[in-house]
């Protein structure tokens, strides 16, 4: 669609976009301020808040835990989510129609309720290890991305190509890896990126699933903020934004950023 734009609309929209980006630059300014409290505009210039991150061992250990959980949780979600997405598309007539809705539940149920219920029923009642429940909770949280985003790719895949390969004698499993998977790779990459970012940023599920010695970076940031109001958190935030920029570069290189508007 394209019509002529009223200048007032363009100005309002430009302001909205400016306000969307500005706070993130303010964090950057606050991170280099040579003051012991958070302030903007920055007073003086220092990088000591960045070196301070590495002196606080809790940031290092929780960052490693977050990366492990995001990697393993996303991998697990894809490992069980891709077969489910495949079956839901390939065998649509043979599976009940309500089954697809099961994989919407992790989006529908509030994350904080999920975290609380996992703590109550799994960590405490079953006594499973904290790391395992945290990992499974994250896998569950990102499972919808695996099923739905990969499913959207499969919906536009022509299954007659697969049938052709099988009728020419290619074994089903080999057919999946050499014929189906290459054709849905964009969906798999998109699902991986969205799932990884969601897991890295998650607060509400992790909130109840972290325990003694095991915590994730966002939870550690929240805990630090309750005690200190210094620019350390601003510098951690800057590093996280650098990670976001890296992810966006990967999205742009592999799929193009416009895929996010679809």
């Amino acid at each position: 669609m394209r019509t002529s734009l009223h200048p007032a609309l363009t100005i309002t929209a430009s302001l909205i976009f400016a306000i969307l980006v500005a706070p993130l630059f303010i964090i950057l300014g606050a991170a280099v301020s040579d003051t012991s409290y958070l302030t903007f505009p920055p007073q003086g210039f220092t990088l000591r808040w960045f070196t301070n991150i590495f002196e606080i061992s809790a940031f290092r250990t929780t960052a490693i835990t977050s990366l492990q959980i995001a990697m393993l949780g996303t991998a697990l979600a894809l490992l069980i989510g891709i077969p489910a997405a495949y079956a839901l598309n390939r065998f649509r007539i043979r599976l009940p129609s309500w089954l697809a809705n099961v994989f919407v539940l992790p989006i529908l149920v509030p994350e904080i309720v999920l975290g609380f219920s996992l703590l109550k029923s799994v960590t405490i009642s079953l006594g499973l290890p904290v790391f395992l429940v945290l990992l499974l909770g994250h896998a569950l949280l990102v499972l919808p991305y695996a099923v739905r985003v990969v499913g959207a790719s499969l919906a536009s895949f022509d299954f007659s190509i697969e049938e052709a390969a099988i009728s020419l004698g290619c074994p089903p499993l080999k057919t999946f890896f050499t014929v189906v998977l290459p054709n849905i790779s964009a969906g798999v990459i998109a699902a991986f990126i969205l799932a990884f970012i969601t897991s890295m940023n998650d607060v509400s599920v992790s909130l109840f699933l972290t325990g003694p010695g095991i915590s994730t970076l966002p939870i550690q940031i929240l805990a630090h903020m309750e005690q200190f109001f210094d620019p350390t958190i601003a510098s951690v935030s800057v590093l996280l934004m650098v990670l976001t920029v890296g992810v966006m570069a990967i999205v742009e290189a592999t799929l193009g950023l416009t895929f996010l508007t679809k």
Binding site: F17, V21, I27, L38, F229
Partner: peptide, 30 residues
Amino acid sequence: IMIIAAVFPLLTGVVVRSFAWLILLGKNGI
């Protein structure tokens, strides 16, 4: 450019984005 300006905050975590408002609205904030 506009899509990037919308996607970047979206991919930045809720903690970082809420924290930005802590700096904006704080006693020593902008």
